[in-house]
Nucleic acid binder design. Structure first.
Lengths: 125, 125
DNA sequence: GTCGTTGCAAAGCGTTTGCAGCCTA
DNA sequence: TAGGCTGCAAACGCTTTGCAACGAC
């Protein structure tokens, strides 16, 4: 990731402005507005490079393609709306995780996703 | 899933005896002991059918292929060992999840994975 | 014997890679 | 101008599907 190209500027900008985790396909679609001939291979290569640089964090939801968000954020979890599929960031963290660890096991981290309906979809129902 | 074939008996048996979630490839490998000419397509078709029947539950870990376990279990979560990759079942559940839900959102469920090292790998280190 | 099921091979689909040409520094 | 970067297309790995043969009932 040495050079500052049009494609990379477009990809970084799209993720910064999204405010939520984006999938590679979403990144491609939006970034093509700024860089018309952008290809999916470049999106994958750039996302991978930005993760390695520590600028991006990979957000893996069960059964979903990986999404990406800027890494400059505090530890947090995600909420996925079952109606619209959109992923939101949530603050806070369950406090009582350690006691769930089996005897003899070493707990190094945890991962949590909440499921339900976002405010917009609750309204729409 | 009307007929009781050699292949289906082998697949069900393998999952019942495993005691932990298995991936399709693991199921194939072990089930071939009981049914030599078993193909991967049959494994996928059977797993899908058993999930639809409610006999199997799909376990999706972030960034991992789906695994399958018998559905006749109470709500629980999983622990994945970062050293050996094995997935274990854990009992219990974080108590304070509801307060993390954003205002206006409807919480319907949650999903959690703990990461660390299993007892065997802690010993080995 | 019927027709649900199987194994094989081909097709899909998302992701990665090879390569010639492009463009940043 | 050098060589990192890009777009295209081919390759990949996992999963699904089409189809003729098989076998449970």
């Amino acid at each position: 990731m040495e050079r500052d190209t049009r494609q990379r500027r477009a990809i970084r900008r799209v993720i910064e402005e999204a405010g939520r985790p984006l999938s590679p396909q979403e990144v491609l679609k939006v970034a093509q507005v700024h860089s018309q001939r952008l290809g999916i291979a470049t999106v994958y290569r750039t996302l991978k490079g930005l993760v390695e640089e520590g600028w991006l964090a990979q957000v893996e939801l069960p059964g979903e393609p990986p999404r990406y968000e800027t890494a400059a954020k505090a530890h947090h979890h995600h909420f996925q709306c079952r109606a619209c599929g959109q992923v939101y960031e949530i603050e806070g963290c369950p406090q009582n995780v350690q006691p769930l660890t089996p005897a003899g096991f070493l707990l190094e981290g945890h991962y949590m996703v909440l499921y339900g309906q976002c405010a917009a979809c609750v309204q729409a129902c």
